[in-house]
Design a protein around this nucleic acid. Structure first.
Lengths: 225, 225
DNA sequence: GCGATGGTTCGACTACCATCGAACTATGAG
DNA sequence: CTCATAGTTCGATGGTAGTCGAACCATCGC
């Protein structure tokens, strides 16, 4: 008993609904201002300020002041992964939203998970990458030689990815699908590529990723046998 | 904003120090009685009872009544993984124990992480498995053909492992080492084997794994080039 | 310079929840 | 049946933390 790091203070930070909403908003990966986060959480500015200083003090978010704005973001990918994992547990344990918003279908289809693609399309993408033997299947994905060629053809600098400290492929459990999608450097690079190719864009106000009709067709063509 | 499962209730459950201590104790993988958990958490029996009913209601632990005892355990591996991940974040954010107990060195050396080996020896084991090409290195481990042979020789039923729904190999971030050790079905099978071979035993009162001198020698021999 | 906007600090209020003692129920040992 | 142990329920208490309004500080645009 009483060994290891203290998880209670960290959990307590996430345990307040207002702060949890802020963190969930930051899961989209963008940096947000204090005001935006206050609106996300549905609290007044002073309350938000208090919450944010606690989150920063607890090391969950980092701040950068820019002019009269203060931009907050998750302090690292590990925090994002932890939050996603919590969503998985929460979903299994039945802590679902009773009132699902109008955005729910769009979010279920495709959304940003920190910096990579999640939802039906994210899961489908990983499945097809495996089916085409571009990444290995089974427990944990891993880029094959065929995969490296294919990714390079897509305009992704695989050599750079492999040189980074960050893992190239990581599985990330999707709370809406209960299956894995692709995270890690490659997952991030792919999503970035979709944006650059104008196949998709981010919804301004949520984590949803909106594919254009042409983009979706291209996506289908790319990842179909 | 306001999408996905509610993480706040789950986090709030973990956010109380008494409950966090209980969950940390359950991370050892064993089922514990209400009384034991009350002692772990340092609270009275009524308080513990209240906490435990909340944890059970929140889906984090499951209960089974046996005679006049009620045994509690984590409701699944996903909860354990989430807790480990939180420990990683907490460690990085500086939420370390100020008073490290006498068991700390033993725990740092080898301990149970839900059902597999963690600590220095856990990290070393994965490293050497990779060095000997029994599992692939890089981002995520994966059992090689050589590895399957070696594990079978150790007395592990690899075919059974591969048939199970659970992943064979999984990386698990070690909060004390800040590196990965081996989780998943294979990680659990290996630890189980060490116990069966009497190379090691569990400390009765903590998560520590105590290797016998002979056991440690055998472990060294096994995983050294 | 001045007003406007973004953010923080302060103080007061409120509500919730962890805590324990005491009483109660249930199982097991003899 | 009787006593002891394990655990829960109830009620009272106290501390803590979330909340907001008002005042205050900083930056930007003019």
């Amino acid at each position: 008993m009483k060994e290891g790091p203290h998880i209670a203070p960290v959990a307590a930070l996430i345990g307040d609904p207002a702060r949890a909403n802020m963190l969930a908003a930051l899961l989209a990966g963008k940096a947000l201002t204090a005001g935006e986060l206050a609106r996300e959480a549905g609290v007044s500015a002073p309350t938000a300020s208090s919450h944010l200083s606690k989150l920063a003090g607890g090391g969950l978010v980092s701040v950068v002041a820019q002019g009269r704005h203060r931009y907050f973001r998750l302090s690292g990918a590990d925090v994002a992964e932890m939050l996603e994992k919590m969503m998985g547990v929460a979903a299994r344990a039945g802590h679902l939203r009773t009132r699902t918003g109008p955005k729910a279908p769009a979010l279920r289809k495709a959304r940003v998970c920190y910096d990579h693609l999640a939802g039906e399309m994210g899961v489908a993408m990983l499945e097809r990458l495996v089916a085409q033997r571009l990444v290995t299947g089974g427990d944990v994905p891993r880029l094959t030689e065929r995969g490296e060629v294919a990714m390079a053809k897509l305009g992704i600098d695989v050599t750079r990815l492999k040189g980074e400290r960050r893992a190239v492929c990581k599985p990330c459990l999707d709370w809406s699908m209960r299956r894995h999608h692709l995270a890690g450097g490659l997952g991030a690079a792919l999503l970035e590529r979709f944006f650059a190719l104008r196949w998709a864009r981010r919804d301004r106000a949520s984590r949803a990723v909106v594919f254009s009709p042409q983009g979706e067709r291209a996506f289908e063509r790319l990842f179909v046998l």
